[in-house]
């Protein structure tokens, strides 16, 4: 972000006071995930790593496993329960849906054959591109059971960690229906941010839609803000979509970027 005019001469860095956070974060788990990526020379975490980071912040994520081949994939799928989704898991692939003509994401896999086919397709496409890739097998979410939100956060030059909540899914950047708060975010502040969205009525059962668990969404916003406060190594967190249903708020996709 540019500072119009000029940079300030002095900063607050000499008088740093820790910010209070409210959610409970497993700091050891966060640190080890970040260290592993750093050791591999990466600043962008895979979806699986990103979701493990969210787990460590108490954010709900789908049951999942990262597997190497079709046999492991079927074992994982049976443990998770059908239907499942299969997604390419590789540091070399950040835009999974656009990757390899759509082979990167296979939704609604209802049986072992479908899981095996999808897994093989991902492995073949990876081999064709000459990249290392594993496969993420994950519990399939029923998207029509709730509303897709985006919850995000980033470390900014002027304000430090900030959190964001907005209308999620594929139209996020079309409608730009988002609200920001400076982190750490109180429950009241997160709730006010959610209520300020044009899309807010969708969460209260608009025209027969399933109402959303706003408390769970509020906690997710707080947890993302707290993660940024607790782990300055993280530059950006993007959780899109967060599926908000009567049963809670689940992070269906996640991208975490570390500071250079």
């Amino acid at each position: 972000m540019s500072d119009r005019g000029a940079a300030d001469g002095t900063t607050a860095s000499d008088a740093a006071t820790p910010l209070d956070t409210v959610t409970r974060i497993d700091e050891d788990a966060v640190e080890s995930i970040i260290e592993r990526a750093r050791a591999a020379g990466r600043t962008t975490l895979t979806e699986a790593e990103s979701k493990s980071l969210l787990d460590a912040a108490g954010i709900e994520t789908p049951d999942r496993a990262v597997v190497a081949d079709a046999e492991e994939a079927i074992t994982a799928a049976e443990a998770i329960g059908y239907p499942v989704v299969a997604k390419v898991s590789s540091p070399a692939v950040t835009h999974k849906t656009e990757w390899a003509d759509g082979a990167g994401v296979a939704l609604d896999l209802a049986d072992a054959d479908a899981v095996a086919d999808a897994t093989d397709a991902i492995r073949e496409a990876a081999a064709a591109e000459g990249i290392e890739a594993e496969v993420l097998i994950e519990d399939a979410a029923a998207l029509d059971a709730g509303t897709e939100l985006i919850v995000g956060g980033m470390n900014t030059p002027s304000f430090g960690p900030v959190a964001l909540v907005g209308l999620g899914g594929v139209f996020t950047e079309v409608y730009e229906d988002v609200a920001h708060r400076i982190a750490p975010v109180t429950a009241a502040e997160a709730r006010a941010a959610v209520e300020s969205l044009t899309a807010a009525p969708l969460l209260s059962g608009y025209r027969g839609r399933p109402p959303g668990d706003v408390d769970a969404l509020v906690e997710t916003v707080q947890a993302v803000g707290d993660l940024l406060v607790e782990a300055p190594a993280i530059d950006e967190i993007d959780v899109n979509p967060v599926l908000v249903s009567p049963d809670g708020a689940v992070a269906l996709d996640a991208l975490v970027v570390l500071a250079e």
């Binding site: 980033m154 304000f159 900030v162 730009e176």
Partner: peptide
């Protein structure tokens, strides 16, 4: 910041007004 949706949706001006 444009790596993420969040980055693309977070302008300085919005942060001041929200803040």
């Amino acid at each position: 910041f444009a790596e993420s949706h969040t980055g693309a949706l977070t302008g300085d001006h919005e942060l001041y007004l929200a803040g």
